[in-house]
Design a protein around this nucleic acid. Structure first.
Lengths: 139, 139
DNA sequence: TATTGTTATACTCTATAACTATA
DNA sequence: TATAGTTATAGAGTATAACAATA
């Protein structure tokens, strides 16, 4: 598992460097990619375990790169809502492609027996989640 | 897998914060924990993909905390060799205990069926490594 | 007065450049 | 001249404190 993470993570970090994005900026983009809600700066900070100023600066940097937009909440003008742009989503899709490519390369290096065993284990893990949908694991 | 890493990683980061250690300092300690070689500052930097000054500063900080020692190589006085102290090893053993504890908590939350399938898959993966000892996976 | 967000300032970690000591 | 390491300086990212705007 450690090897898998190290191998695939390296490519992702490389890609982030090419875009000039930090890991925090990537996490923020992923949070904003959720289509359910329009995230405030405060929520961004809370979800990413960051101070409010850090969240504000992170939003600034993404704004500067055109990956998000920022606008006042009409119902509470203290709140600034952040919205990912099409360019932002495109960056995330690229990152996911890189990650998937890494996992596939790793899986290709396995024997058929190994792949089958891993596949069976992952299926079982996934089925268990369906049985207990509110169980997100320990801690 | 993502959930496992996130759950166990959080505890490790917490412990590092308690010790006042950064992730880089932890990696450096782990490198020095290998009993095979006495690592130079340059090698430390290379292995951790850091600049030489950064490696030097990292060594400084570990020295200050008493987790490593630094001494000139008698055969080439330009080289400074770093050595982990018993205190340094103790920190690493604590970190490993925290990590293992996290994995065990995660495994405890699985059903017997899930644990068995995972166990079988990991065994198969491990056997494959023995068949191809020079295969460290793709990339 | 409380909450949301920004700006001011300081600290950590890192890099490149300049420097010292040794080979 | 080349190499190992340190020191100087600058930039990114973060935190706390002080501030502005809105509720």
């Amino acid at each position: 598992m450690h090897e898998l993470m190290r191998g695939t993570g390296g490519r992702v970090v490389e890609t982030l460097n090419e875009y000039g994005l930090s890991l925090t900026q990537m996490k923020a983009l992923y949070l904003l990619d959720e289509p359910t809600e329009e995230v405030s700066v405060k929520v961004l900070g809370t979800c990413l375990a960051m101070s409010l100023p850090a969240a504000s600066r992170t939003a600034d940097s993404l704004l500067l790169r055109g990956l998000v937009t920022r606008h006042e909440d009409p119902e509470d003008r203290r709140i600034k809502r952040l919205l990912i742009t099409p360019e932002g989503r495109e960056v995330l899709r690229t990152l996911e492609a890189v990650r998937l490519d890494g996992v596939e390369r790793w899986a290709q290096a396995l024997t058929t027996t190994q792949r089958d065993a891993l596949h069976a284990a992952l299926l079982t893990l996934h089925d268990g989640d369906d049985d207990h949908p509110d169980n997100e694991g320990p801690r």
